[in-house]
Nucleic acid binder design. Sequence first.
DNA 1: GTTATTTTTTTAAAAGTTATGAAAACTAAT
DNA 2: ATTAGTTTTCATAACTTTTAAAAAAATAAC
Lengths: 226, 226
Amino acid sequence: MGRILVVDDEFRIRQIIRKYAEFEGYTVKEAVDGMQAIEICRKEEFDLIIMDVMMPELDGFSACREIRKFRQTPIIMLSARGEEYDKIHGFELGSDDYVVKPFSPKELMMRVNAVIKRSSGGNLPENAKDIFTYKGLSVDFSARIVTIDGERIDMTPKEYELFFYMVKNKGLALTREKLISEVWGYDFFGDERTLDTHIKLLRKSIGEYSKCIVTLRGVGYRFETL
Amino acid sequence: MGRILVVDDEFRIRQIIRKYAEFEGYTVKEAVDGMQAIEICRKEEFDLIIMDVMMPELDGFSACREIRKFRQTPIIMLSARGEEYDKIHGFELGSDDYVVKPFSPKELMMRVNAVIKRSSGGNLPENAKDIFTYKGLSVDFSARIVTIDGERIDMTPKEYELFFYMVKNKGLALTREKLISEVWGYDFFGDERTLDTHIKLLRKSIGEYSKCIVTLRGVGYRFETL
DNA sequence: GTTATTTTTTTAAAAGTTATGAAAACTAAT
DNA sequence: ATTAGTTTTCATAACTTTTAAAAAAATAAC
């Protein structure tokens, strides 16, 4: 287990990735452009694809899109610094991660391991995935699993419901009323401070990421990826 | 689903965009200038508008501004390299993306897909965005975030409410009575100077943009984009 | 130019909100 | 019924915002 497809037009890059990946115990196959990558993917299955954005014949984005039509293989995109940032960012949701060139092989391998662990760890049917990730934090909505740097975070049902709702609505100001009616139900008539207490418990649970839950005085809270 | 309005005075450009967009499965409608675009937008709804900046009759910026008054359709602007860079940059936050001519159709399509995915496909809450921008100032109403040159401005609830109301009613003379009843509530019976104090605090918070809040002696205040 | 009026700035006290810790109530499993 | 874990309540501490009032500055009127 651990098959990786490396797609890059530069031999040197493919070589270096192969070296490190094989050292980590992965089996590596190579493709020199997007077109070739698609053909190979039709015939064989991989646990991960590492693909350069800029390639002759067919660029990484197009290839990625094409492959995704018939495979759910996780994909890590490689791109030159600065260049195409917007595109990658917009695309990011579709790919699983991206690494900026020049990269340190170590860093790349770390990401490779993370992505593979993330995708193979959960033995769910790959299609029903609904996962949010931000840095070392990942929230698997369908599995009800929250991990930080790969480690599971135990959460009580209420913490999970609250966190779930906030992450799903990340970047939005959520009023106390909204949070309470969404998490506790519109007919909750309990104490006003209940929400505060659960925010506190939740913050404690997510450790360093507690700073992602910002207090909006007089309004409520907002979960944000800084 | 996937209706696009292409606004450009050059037939060749419209044709090429149409070709690629239809290939990707979108339905395309065309307009030759800003005026026509506005008329069409009043009658029909689109998922995306691709609009050239330089056009006879009515330029892209003006048309965009006009359309935004009644539609939230995402807009991608096209412009010649270098030219109008400042405008585009300042405008960027208001539009959803911009592409510099000459562009590769592939690149444009990638952006089109990204914008459409972001605004409709992606079930992220990010779509419900409601953001006002003017130069380096941006007010995100749904996230309750105000930034100046990308940096967050901390505001107290009252400052935010007051600013929110003034920006939403930008360009209008707002009487002290109106402001107080809208921000504090019609039943506020506090001190007359409270409003002045909060205007002061607000001005301090928004720094250089404080000059956008003009005092209307004997009347009230007005927020304006100079 | 002086005076009266309005606006702005400055304070400090008052009012209001959120965070926290601990205990009580509740729930599900044994 | 007991227990372990979870949720809720409550009192209080910590903190922030709002208010009010007065002094200073600016503006308009004379």
